[in-house]
């Protein structure tokens, strides 16, 4: 696993064309961070879909767990999109499969690595305090 390879087809996502704002509510520390997303700078780094919540978080030093490297193979980057969900790329069945493993699932839950806002509205994202690895290790 890991990274990308020559056979990959990336999921379709519409990237923003104008600046917008993402407000991160960090459950573990109670901290809030407001990020101005500049479409011209995307992707900010190399994990998760370009322009995804994970990309934006990691690109600004916000600690969002992503044990699989941001390839939709675990649920550790689970976030709750509290505002702006209609502007985000639609969840695929693969994302929904992974989300089912996340604790505290809500109707606004997404995987940070797959959720790409299109910039048509500002977004508020909660990183749950209990965000943790939930893959089964029952052996």
């Amino acid at each position: 696993m890991g990274g990308t390879n020559p056979y990959i087809k990336q999921a379709e996502a519409r990237l923003p064309t104008k600046p917008y704002q993402v407000r991160f509510l960090i459950g573990e520390t109670g901290e809030e961070r407001v990020i101005q997303v500049d479409p011209g700078q995307l992707p900010y780094q190399r994990s998760g879909q370009p322009g995804s919540i994970l990309d934006i978080a990691l690109g600004h030093g916000i600690d969002l767990e992503h044990t699989c490297g941001g390839v939709c193979a675990c649920s550790t980057c689970h976030v709750i999109v509290k505002r702006g969900l209609p502007s985000c790329s639609e969840a695929t069945e693969d994302e929904e499969d992974q989300l089912e493993e996340a604790p505290g699932l809500t109707i606004q839950s997404r995987l940070g690595c797959q959720c790409v806002p299109d910039g048509s509205m500002d977004v508020v994202v909660e990183i749950p305090a209990w965000n943790r690895n939930v893959v089964k290790e029952d052996h």
């Binding site: 696993m1 890991g2 994990s47 044990t67 941001g70």
Partner: peptide, 15 residues
């Protein structure tokens, strides 16, 4: 999950 000392903002996490 490897935490690699590379990338713009290490660690780069890859499984």
């Amino acid at each position: 999950s490897l935490h690699l000392p590379v990338g713009e903002k290490p660690p780069l996490v890859r499984a």
